[in-house]
């Protein structure tokens, strides 16, 4: 029996987070008793509205989730992304404070620094054979310290027109950061799925020993995954700094690691590694941002925001666990038999 298009769509990893977003939008509509949440207006050729705002503010998490997906696919995890965002922002801010340095130079230096940090995690994991959690935990702590050291613990204000465009500009009516993330996603999709690179990543994460015997340079693949994650985190740090026109090394990128891991898990990539879905992670990140906006809309104070997030994460993990699946499956077949 061949699968219908509907059946294959239902099994796609994007369905669940998409359903979650629709549910949250519905909650907002019912709460507001108006369609204000969905309204998108055009002013000066730019799109405005809550949905556009979600796309704009969610772009950083989407970007970090892209890199995190690759790391989780090679059965690792990267806890350093939040700190690396701060490092990227700090390096760029310090360089941009001098007029002599161009925006391009500052951004290149920032991205090089975070990619190097990612490579360090990768080497710790593959060469020294430290568990990924611990290796990236070290980078997380040292990274935050280094970022504070770079800026002397101060919040540095950035005032450069070219740099501000990154997080506040518009392209084709859409926020530039969103366009950038979508372009990066499409580029990654082409590189990973049109070449053997995606297959290498899945193989390395699924069965390391077998991949090594098949002649795959597993260490190199893993290192590249961690480097990509560092690069994505650095770029997200630049987007964040550009968005608020300042580099905050103490709180910039705070809790981003859990947000990104959550986006990846919700998007259907298992924490055990192997098969991955970049699109799923993007939609997962959007779900998280929609949840945040919904909580503001419902009047939940920002300080309490971690609680519902944590509950959602636990809920999703439980739903994905084998035990509850078997249990739910049992209910399903029992009803069929009856």
């Amino acid at each position: 029996m061949s699968e219908t298009r509907l059946q294959s769509f239902c099994r796609s990893p994007v369905v669940w987070p998409l359903a979650g977003i629709l549910l949250l939008v519905l909650v907002n509509l019912v709460h507001d008793r108006s369609t204000a949440f969905l309204q998108v207006t055009v002013t000066d050729g730019h799109l405005y509205g809550t949905l556009v705002d979600i796309l704009n503010q969610g772009s950083r998490c989407m970007l970090v989730a892209l890199g995190m997906t690759l790391v989780i696919a090679v059965s690792g995890v990267d806890l350093s992304v939040g700190s690396l965002m701060a490092v990227g922002a700090a390096v760029a801010a310090v360089l941009l404070a001098r007029e002599a340095h161009s925006v391009a130079l500052a951004m290149t230096a920032a991205l090089a620094a975070t990619a190097l940090a990612g490579l360090a995690s990768g080497l710790l994991v593959t060469w020294v054979r430290v568990q990924p959690i611990v290796a990236t935990l070290i980078l997380m702590v040292v990274g935050r310290g280094v970022a504070q050291l770079i800026t002397d613990g101060n919040v540095i204000i950035i005032q450069r027109a070219g740099f501000e465009f990154l997080g506040n500009g518009y392209l084709l009516g859409l926020p530039f950061s969103t366009v950038l993330v979508v372009a990066l996603y499409l580029g990654a999709q082409v590189v990973l799925r049109r070449s053997a690179a995606g297959l290498f990543i899945e193989a390395a994460g699924d069965n390391e020993t077998a991949s090594r015997f098949a002649g795959l340079a597993v260490g190199r693949v893993k290192c590249l995954a961690y480097m990509t994650s560092g690069l994505c985190a650095g770029l997200a740090g630049l987007l964040a700094a550009s968005n608020i026109r300042a580099a905050d090394t103490l709180r910039g990128g705070e809790n981003m690691e859990l947000d990104a891991i959550f986006a990846v898990v919700v998007g259907g990539t298992a924490l055990t590694g192997g098969r991955f879905s970049l699109l799923g992670s993007l939609v997962g990140a959007l779900l998280l941002q929609t949840l945040t906006v919904t909580m503001y809309n419902l009047g939940v104070p920002p300080a309490v925001a971690p609680v519902p997030k944590a509950l959602l994460i636990i809920g999703v993990c439980l739903l994905q666990s084998e035990k509850s699946r078997r249990w739910l499956g049992g209910l399903w077949s029992a009803r069929k038999a009856a």
């Binding site: 995890v77 959690i133 809790n255 690691e257 859990l258 891991i261 898990v265 924490l271 104070p301 300080a303 309490v304 925001a305 971690p306 609680v307 997030k309 944590a310 509950l311 994460i313 636990i314 993990c317």
Partner: peptide
């Protein structure tokens, strides 16, 4: 690590609550 990371959010959010 995932469960206790969620626990961390839960406890910190509870504290700020």
């Amino acid at each position: 690590f995932l469960v206790t990371l969620a626990g961390m959010f839960l406890a910190r959010g509870g504290a700020w609550w």
